[in-house]
Design a binder for these strands. Structure first.
Lengths: 96, 96
DNA sequence: TAAACTAGTTTATAAAATAAACCAAATTTA
DNA sequence: TAAATTTGGTTTATTTTATAAACTAGTTTA
C-alpha cells in the first residue's frame, strides 16, 4: 500500500521552504519570501509550524538596525524531508 | 523558482487514486477503498472532485444486483498527473 | 420479517491554508 | 522636524479543504 505522506511537509509552501533550505543550509525571511513568492503572513505562519515541529531553527538578530530572521534545517527536519521524498516517490514512480 | 503544484493532485487521497489508476487503467470503488485505506465518505468525495475536474470518468452499473462504480483516468487526468510528477520532482530532487 | 450487510452519498465538523490587517522601529521626504 | 514610507515581520479573520459521521437505498441471510 502507498505510504502516508507527512502532512507537515505535504504542503506546497512548507515543502518549498524545506526544499530551499536543503540546498542552502541557511536562509533569511526575505530570501524565502522572494524565492517562494508567498505572502509575508503565510510565510511567517508556515515557518512557525516547521519550527514548532523542530524541523528548523529560527534565529533572530539585528543587522543594520533591522530585525533579521534566519532559518536553518535541523537534523530532524532533514530526516523528515528524506522520508517524505522516499514516500512521494512511490506515488509518482511507475516502476519502483 | 519552484513550480506550483496542482492542488487537486497535491492531496494524499486524490494522488493515491490517480497513482493507482495510472497503473491499472480501471478500478472499482471497493478496490480503491481497500488500496487507499480511506473511509467510504472521503473516497466518494475525492472521486467526485476528480470527476468534476474531468480527470477521471465514473461509470455506474449493477453487478449481481449490487451497484458498482468504476473509475478510469481520462487523458486530461493523465496529463495532469504527468505535470504534477514533473513539478514535485523539482522539490525533491537535489540535482535536477 | 427483522437484522445485518453492500455500496455508496450527503452533510456537519474540524483542521488547514491564506490574505488582510496590524504593529513597531527605522528611514526617507517635504 | 513632522509626516509619510519602508522594513521586517506577527496576529487574526476568513475561506477553503479534508474528513468522518450520519444517512440512503437496496440486498441477503437467518
Amino acid at each position: 500500500m502507498l505510504p502516508n505522506l507527512n502532512p507537515l511537509l505535504h504542503n506546497q509552501l512548507r515543502l518549498s521552504i524545506v526544499s530551499l533550505l536543503i540546498g542552502l543550509e541557511k536562509a533569511d525571511f526575505n530570501f524565502l519570501l522572494k524565492e517562494t513568492g508567498a505572502s509575508k503572513g503565510n510565510l511567517s505562519v508556515q515557518i512557525n509550524k516547521l519550527r514548532e515541529a523542530e524541523y528548523l531553527t529560527v534565529s533572530k538578530s539585528f543587522v543594520n538596525n533591522y530585525p533579521k530572521t534566519e532559518c536553518a534545517l535541523s537534523p530532524k527536519g532533514i530526516k523528515a524531508f528524506e522520508e517524505y521524498v522516499a514516500g512521494i516517490k512511490k506515488y509518482i514512480d511507475p516502476n519502483p
